[in-house]
Write a protein that binds this DNA or RNA. Structure first.
Lengths: 195, 195
DNA sequence: TTTCTTCCATACGGTTCAGTATTGAAAATT
DNA sequence: AATTTTCAATACTGAACCGTATGGAAGAAA
């Protein structure tokens, strides 16, 4: 409603990034099935005419969305793991916390949608592989600085990310007697390198 | 092709379970988007006429699929965790192994599709919650028999399942220098209760 | 002002799918 | 054998969607 008036007041029209941003929001709320041209147009208060001006076709949009997601994830992990010497453990625990708290209201659904989608789309598979490799590189580096062997650092990184993604897939709110305690125990298990 | 002749030779026609079985296969291969009436009909070499005889509508099928999936998962976990005294650790390690090996070619994609789907469907959410609760009950029992406190048993169970589901979401084949070693390290981390 | 470029609206055709109605054929029952 | 019940094929409506073609409005350039 407000969007509409703003647009009619000649906002310098939409560009590719606006469509991608809307697509990511749709991906978060409706999953991969939400990446529809006409549906996105409604979300942005325009028509398909705009879409086919900025994009070749739906395939083009999907590729752009994946690329934008990849860049965002890699930028995030670099920020999270850029720890000064001595703060490596805090950085790891912070990384672990970012995903398991309710902060990532938007991020985690996108993450899951992309990964589930990667089971049937080779482009998504490649993007996920790139993101995973970069993330594990970054966390493994921190674990090694804490004294872990390369093998252990890799294993801990794998466990860390598998846990956070897997946890977000579970619905155990009704079962966990003390969710906070369980999370603390797990965090200690993953991110406590015995020096 | 063979299916076709068999059917024409008057196999006692399809029943609900055949449709559900086909739906689970479609769910595994194409995700939630594969649960289409006409698509399933093609897969079973019949037409929609048959579907609407056995089911009220698509909503009906989806509910039946979720229910069938739930029962299957609960039956599986009961079988996996029915360990004789002294074999608890082996049962836990076996449970851990079942999901992380390539055996579950069909099961894991369904698991992920249902769980991703549960982000937007209340029925799927409820089903997943039931399955999670039962699984964690079963594994926590084993951990407690191994000497873990109730809190630790719960935490370990949560970590176990979050890990196996999260791992199946990751694409780190190109990065892991020694996948087997990492898996062993993680298994030891999750399922080695210090007595 | 006129022309051109940019950006979007509208209208259209084609596809896929959910759901309904009707018909038909084999099986079971009488 | 006649009839009823069970199950599936066919044909249809309507909606959602992709992609194209065309026209139009606003701003920039001439």
């Amino acid at each position: 409603m407000e969007e509409k008036t703003i647009r009619k007041a000649r906002q310098p029209s939409l560009d590719r990034s606006a469509w991608i941003k809307g697509a990511l929001a749709a991906l978060s709320e409706e999953g991969h099935a939400g990446l529809r041209v006409e549906t996105l147009a409604k979300r942005l208060n325009v028509t398909k005419g705009s879409f086919y001006w900025h994009f070749e076709d739906r395939h083009d949009l999907v590729g752009a969305v994946l690329e934008a997601w990849k860049l965002g994830r890699i930028a995030d992990i670099h920020k999270q793991t850029a720890a000064p010497s001595g703060k490596e453990l805090a950085a790891l625990r912070h990384t672990l916390e970012v995903y398991s708290t309710s902060r990532n209201r938007k991020g985690l659904p996108i993450e899951l949608a992309v990964r589930e989608w990667a089971n049937r789309d080779t482009r998504a598979t490649a993007i996920v592989a790139e993101v995973d490799a970069e993330r594990m590189r970054c966390t493994a580096r921190l674990f090694e600085k804490l004294g872990a062997s390369p093998a252990e650092a890799t294993a801990r990184s794998l466990l860390l990310y598998a846990y956070v993604f897997g946890f977000s897939l579970m619905r155990c709110d009704h079962f966990l007697p003390n969710p906070a305690a369980a999370k603390v125990w797990i965090a200690d298990c993953i991110a406590c390198v015995s020096t």
